[in-house]
Design a protein around this nucleic acid. Sequence first.
DNA 1: AACTCAAACAACCGCAAAAAT
DNA 2: AATTTTTGCGGTTGTTTGAGT
Length: 325
Amino acid sequence: MEVKGSSNSNKSAVLISQSEEEEMMDLRRGPWTVDEDLTLINYIATHGEGRWNSLARSAGLKRTGKSCRLRWLNYLRPDVRRGNITLEEQLLILELHTRWGNRWSKIAQYLPGRTDNEIKNYWRTRVQKHAKQLKCDVNSKQFKDAMRYLWMPRLVERIQAAAAASTTTTTVVAPTNTSINNNNNAFTYNNNLNNNFEVHNGKMMLPTSTPPSVMANNDFVGSQITTQSYNTPENSSTAASSDSFGTPISDFNDYYNSNNINNLGDNNFYQASQTLFSHEQGMDLQSMMMVESNTPWMQSGDTSDNFWNVENMLFLEQQLMNDNM
DNA sequence: AACTCAAACAACCGCAAAAAT
DNA sequence: AATTTTTGCGGTTGTTTGAGT
């Protein structure tokens, strides 16, 4: 329905472009006013959503149906979750993005209350910007390795640190591959980062069933995970609000050693570090770390609302199973 | 206080798939 | 069955906000 007619001798046959149509109908564009919001909310409250074009007309909104739909889904819907992206959500976004790429709506399905738009914005403003600062392509192997072997483990560390500082509620990172043991109300988190831990009755613990040798074969074992359980804060804004790399890494080897990930032999992490240290494409980890330690990255808000509780994890587990992961 | 700049967020656009007619 | 309309997605652009000077 979009023909900018130059030969419009037969006017009845000329299709009208969207902008011309909007002009004729006096359609508004740009930011929504409070009145418009209220009108839309009230209309949907009584008539429900859907059929957006006719909805817009019936509600008396001088907007396209598309605009109404977007406003409702991304902003006005009552279950839209607002506020800063938590550490757990950041980790989940990175994790799922490595799986699916720019499938924002699919990723958003696993972050209840977050919209694809918000996740996309997050990715573009934070992640892509950081890639730019590192002078590498966001899709390059280097950047993906940095994400997977440096930033995501760091996020896990920070989540754990926040958890350790707390005494009240439980927050865990989202699992991508979990196994549920119904007998002891526990499940194991073992994502692609191979960060292993279990949740027992709402507390995060090392898997007692996993022998150290198995743990050692994993890519990364968070140094802060021991056999004690962790609780998370009601409000861990202090721990969570700073950079994901709040503690600057001056030396990759220090980081490597400090996380008990040395002496792991032939594993992915080793290979990744080799890749990262290679200068083949003009990038080395030392400089990467320099940049990383000096630039804001993944500013996070609080993790106060205990979003990723065990119920959420179980729900997510089910969803991922259904998805034939 | 005024200005600049960049980050964060909100909204729009084009396209394709799905649904309705 | 063909056509039109609606919906949903991903990319992009526009606007607002806030920090720094």
